[in-house]
Every structure is written in structure tokens, then in C-alpha cells.
């Protein structure tokens, strides 16, 4: 446990030192500020645009950070050969990977928190109120980026950063289309195709389950069961992917 904590804290420190992270956060802030300009160029429901752009920026840049940081962490350790002295110590490979994952989560949590505070301040200045509904969307965005990070770690446990990035991004895109995939199979009338699409539906991450931006912006009622089940689904998916990552990483030869 101590080893996991030490690796997580170290990963966080390493990520914080990364200049790419700052530039991404800067772009997210800029996008949120742009919403103020866009807001002036429109008519009707102006606050909505600020909230949509804010949540969209936090989500988009959260995903980019999760992929960029996630795919490089393990690879860097191997490339710089810093993994050898680490694994020579009584640190299991699984602990190393879990520590790395928690490190990314900590980075993403801080980044999401920073951007959320900025968004809330913008809304407070513009609208004069605090909108607690946005917290639901921000929380589920964090779960979504946590799933993306787990996938990035999984691919980077056996592949190069470029390929890991491509695979993770592809899964991010497909993750928003799985409902359509299932519907496509069900509408096809072909039993085999329906079986294949249903199988893929459960295998691939269903990231639309974490999309509660609409409910948050329009103040639509969200059942607590829906949030709880989305979190449970996310945790199960992350645990499965991390276990597979550990299996791959355990068998990896570092020669």
C-alpha cells in the first residue's frame, strides 16, 4: 500500500512538472473565456452557452490530458530505464501499475477541480448564482476520464505511446457510439450480427452513460439510482481493465 501511494504521489509530481499539462489547462481556460465572447454574439439563453462550453471544455481537455499523460507514463519509465531499480525493490509490478493509475487520477482530479472552480466563478460573475446542478455533470465527467485513463494505461502496458494513443482515442470515439452499434445490430434482423453487436456493446466502454451535461444544464431531474449505477459501471469497467493491464504488464519482458 505504501509503495502504491509513493508511486502515485511521484506520478502526480511528474505530471505536474509536465509543461503539456499546463498548456492543455490554459487552452481549457481560454475556451471557457471564449464562451463569454460567443455569448455576446447570440440571442436567447445566454447562460446556457457558457455552461455548455464550460462543461464541454472540461470534458474534452480532461480526455486529452488522460490520454496524453496515460500513454506516456509506463513507456517513459521503460525508456529511461528508471523502472529497473524500482522493480528491483520489493515492489510488485501490479503495485507499480496501480500506483501509476492513482497518480493519473490525482492529476485529473486536481485538473478537473481547477477548471470547475474557474467555471463556477465565471457563472457566478455572469449570472450571480451558484449552479449546483453542474456538479453532477462534473462528477460523471471525472468518472469518464478515469475510464479513459485506465484504457490508456492498459494499452501502454504492452504497446508504444503512439499506438496506445490511437487505440485509446479510437475507444473513446466508439465509446460514444455503442448504443447506436447495438441498435444497428437489433435492427439488422440478422441473428449473428445482433449477437456480435451485443457482445461489442458489453465489451466496449459505454461512455454515453457518463454524459449528464444535458441534465445539468437544463436542470432536469436525475435519479440517484442512475448516478449510482453509472459510477458502479465505471468502477467495474476500470477494475476489469486495470486487472487486464496488470496481467499484460506482468508478462512483459523488459530486456
Amino acid at each position: 500500500m505504501k509503495a502504491i501511494r509513493a508511486i502515485a504521489v511521484n506520478t502526480f509530481k511528474e505530471a505536474v512538472r509536465n509543461k503539456i499539462l499546463y498548456s492543455l489547462i490554459f487552452f481549457a481556460f481560454s475556451m471557457m473565456l471564449i464562451s463569454l465572447v460567443l455569448d455576446q454574439a447570440t440571442v436567447g439563453q445566454r447562460n446556457k452557452i457558457i455552461k455548455d462550453m464550460g462543461l464541454g471544455s472540461i470534458n474534452l481537455f480532461g480526455v486529452i490530458i488522460a490520454i496524453v499523460v496515460g500513454i506516456n507514463l509506463v513507456y517513459k519509465e521503460i525508456e529511461k530505464r528508471t523502472i529497473y531499480p524500482l522493480l528491483a525493490k520489493p515492489v510488485k509490478r501490479s503495485h507499480f501499475l496501480i500506483g501509476k493509475y492513482f497518480g493519473i487520477l490525482l492529476t485529473l482530479a486536481v485538473e478537473t477541480l481547477l477548471m470547475s472552480v474557474f467555471l463556477f466563478l465565471l457563472i457566478l460573475v455572469y449570472e450571480g448564482t451558484f449552479d449546483p446542478f453542474l456538479l453532477i455533470a462534473l462528477f460523471t465527467i471525472f468518472i469518464e476520464v478515469s475510464v479513459i485513463s485506465a484504457l490508456a494505461i492498459f494499452f501502454s502496458s504492452f504497446s508504444t505511446p503512439f499506438l496506445s494513443g490511437m487505440f485509446t482515442f479510437a475507444l473513446y470515439v466508439i465509446g460514444h457510439l455503442t448504443e447506436y452499434l447495438k441498435k444497428f445490430g437489433a435492427d439488422s434482423g440478422n441473428a449473428l450480427l445482433e449477437w456480435v453487436t451485443t457482445f461489442l456493446y458489453y465489451l466496449l466502454p459505454n461512455l454515453e452513460r457518463f454524459n449528464m451535461k444535458e441534465a445539468a444544464v437544463y436542470h432536469l431531474p436525475v435519479e440517484s439510482g442512475r448516478i449510482l449505477l453509472s459510477v458502479t459501471y465505471g468502477l467495474f469497467y476500470i477494475a476489469t481493465v486495470m486487472l487486464l493491464s496488470i496481467l499484460c504488464f506482468d508478462r512483459r519482458d523488459f530486456k
Binding site: 460567443l38 447570440t42 446556457k48 452557452i49 462550453m53 460514444h176 454515453e208 451535461k213
Partner: peptide, 12 residues
């Protein structure tokens, strides 16, 4: 999942 953001841009 960014359909609202896209709708806003199209609205402008």
C-alpha cells in the same frame, strides 16, 4: 457527447 456545444455553435 458534445451535441449541446455543437448546437450552440450552430445557433451562433
Amino acid at each position: 457527447g458534445y451535441n449541446q456545444m455543437l448546437a450552440d455553435l450552430l445557433w451562433i
